[in-house]
């Protein structure tokens, strides 16, 4: 489903120095896989996730989705793919604080140029119900607990019925109990909803729950 070929990512630090975040990454992720990308901080795992999720572009190499090379796509085509194909869950939740829970969840549908086969409002209500947030739908995110915020973020990631769910340290800002709940949800989405899930983490207890784990060190894949 996703194929990364010879991916390099370099950042310019100043005029003469560049920092290489990713080196020669080769990676294939199949549909319905539950994959963990593990590595210490600075290993390039977040950068890798951003590239897989089309938030960032590699300095070199090819990202293919369903055998389609994405490097020639322009901003609006990439944004469209990101909108329809990927759902993101971040460590800091990244909800918009001046939108209500409901408005946050439905936001991706507002940017969609595709005629949806379902009513996004109904879908949003369904997701609110599924994650136990129905009473909180008119709340603003800063009035919610971390666990609740992360569930809102997951609901937002699911509103467009994506194929791929990308979670960057999804439990990093949560206590272990709430962390467990989130991991259970991710597991369920993979099993029941047939989503492809990639979790980026430094936490072994998280990666242990994945079927496959990819270890990253200094921008290179150590083990796969």
């Amino acid at each position: 489903m996703i194929k990364l070929k010879n991916i390099w990512k370099e950042y310019k630090i100043d005029k003469d120095n560049t920092f290489t975040a990713l080196k020669k990454i080769e990676l294939t992720i199949q549909k319905r896989e539950f994959t963990a990308i593990i590595g210490s901080s600075g290993s390039g795992k977040s950068t890798l996730m951003h590239i897989i999720g089309l938030l960032d572009r590699p300095s070199q190499g090819e990202v293919s989705i369903h055998d389609k090379n994405t490097s020639s796509l322009d901003d609006s085509e990439i944004s469209k793919l990101r909108n329809e194909y990927v759902g993101f869950v971040f460590q800091q939740f990244h909800l918009i604080n001046n939108l209500t829970v409901f408005e946050n969840i439905i936001l991706p549908a507002r940017y969609s140029r595709k005629k949806l086969e379902y009513d996004p409002k109904e879908k949003a209500f369904e997701l609110l119900h599924r994650f136990g947030l129905t009473d909180k739908k008119m709340y603003y995110p800063n009035k919610l607990s971390g666990g609740e915020q992360q569930r809102v973020a997951i609901a937002r990631a699911l509103i467009m019925n994506p194929e791929l769910l990308l979670a960057d340290e999804p439990t990093g800002n949560l206590d272990s109990k709430n962390g467990e709940i989130i991991l259970d949800i991710l597991k369920e989405l993979n099993k029941k909803d047939n989503l492809t899930v990639i979790v980026v983490t430094h936490d072994k207890t998280v990666s242990n729950r994945a079927r496959r784990s990819i270890q990253l060190k200094d921008g290179q894949i150590l083990s796969n």
Binding site: S79, K80, R82, I96, L107, R156, M160
Partner: peptide, 16 residues
């Protein structure tokens, strides 16, 4: 800025 980033992540184009 951050809000812009979030909107972009969920699919807003630079045009949006």
């Amino acid at each position: 800025r951050k809000e812009i980033g979030i909107r972009r992540a969920v699919g807003a184009t630079s045009q949006d």
